[in-house]
Simulated assay, not measured.
Amino acid sequence: MKKIIKRSLVSFLEKKGFLMARVTERKKIIELIESLRPINVQNELIRLGPKGDGGYLVPDDLENIEACFSPGVDKISEFELECLKRGMKIFLADKSVEKPNFNLPEDKFDFIKMFVGCTTNDDFITMDDWVSIKCQSDNSDLLLQMDIEGSEYNSLINMSNHLMNRFRIMVIEFHSLQDLWNPHFFNLNQTVFDKILQTHICVHIHPNNCCGIYSRYGIEIPRVAEFTFLRKDRVTSKTYANRFPHHLDYDNTDNEPISLPKIWYRNI
């Protein structure tokens, strides 16, 4: 009887022009979160970049990585400088700035004034086109550090499997995660994460305290979070990480500190 009444009420409201918001099933969101539970691997996490925004945790497995590709240039580029010091070439891309914010000879880095996205034109370039233009080799290991304000979903879903496999380590800031409750956004998000998890495992999550945590139906979701992934062939041992924040984590902003909710790293 309750179901009949509910259906009748929904039908009545829709006929009156009040569209009922559909939400993603709670079970699906929990399953997605569980698939992303961070793993401790044999290489300890180290921090590249400053103690704040622009610094990220990565596995100490950087030897013989040819280059760091970093779409999204911010005011701070110390992460890329750390990669340069470790022998990597550094490639940066961002249409919204004139150049990266560091004092280096031009032969020490490569910058293109373009956005990274799902197509290549006058303003945008795909990850595959960018790497193929800049990298002479076709099979060397690379590192990806991506912070492109929501365009990460289209850029990653468009990336070829071959290029995905070339990235030994990927550090990606994902935005608008509270919209996982929107079924359309959830489907896109799940497709992106499923693609990544075919070849990589999550080794760290750090919520950006710029935007807080969204809570619904007992599930806490950071609105913005930095995820670190390691390619599966680099993993020889693993256990679930169970202590957050990591001692090398720092707040991104002066806003109220937040920690990764327990549902993201423990069975609740």
Rank of each mutant, 00 (worst) to 15 (best):
I205W: 02
V41Q: 04
L57R: 01
D179P: 00
E173R: 13
I148N: 00
E82T: 02
L57N: 06
F167Y: 05
F124Q: 02
I213G: 03
K108N: 05
S132L: 09
S70A: 08
L163C: 08
S96I: 04
E82W: 09
Y56W: 06
G218D: 04
L248T: 02
K108M: 10
R234F: 12
Y217D: 15
E173M: 10
M114N: 13
V203T: 14
A225D: 04
P38A: 03
S176G: 04
H162R: 09
N208M: 05
F124R: 01
K238E: 15
S151D: 07
I263E: 02
R86W: 04
D249F: 02
M20N: 14
V23R: 05
Y153Q: 01
Y250E: 07
I169N: 06
E25I: 05
K28M: 08
I30A: 10
A21I: 10
L104E: 06
E149S: 00
R231V: 01
P38I: 01
S70Q: 12
F229M: 00
N154H: 06
L144Y: 05
N182Q: 06
V203F: 03
A241M: 13
K28D: 10
N121S: 09
E98R: 12
M1Q: 11
D53E: 12
G117L: 00
P261E: 14
N267H: 15
S155C: 01
V203R: 09
R47W: 02
M146E: 06
D122P: 03
L57M: 11
E173D: 11
V192S: 11
D53P: 02
E106G: 14
V235Q: 15
S137D: 13
S151C: 03
S176I: 07
C135W: 06
S259C: 12
S137E: 11
N40E: 15
I33M: 00
N267F: 04
I213D: 04
H175V: 02
H204M: 02
C211K: 01
K238A: 13
L92Y: 03
I213A: 08
L45N: 00
K195N: 05
E78C: 00
G54R: 01
D122Q: 15
N182Y: 00
K85S: 14
G87A: 07
I268V: 10
L19G: 05
P105D: 13
N209G: 04
V116N: 04
T119N: 10
M159V: 05
G49Q: 06
C202L: 05
S8D: 04
E25A: 12
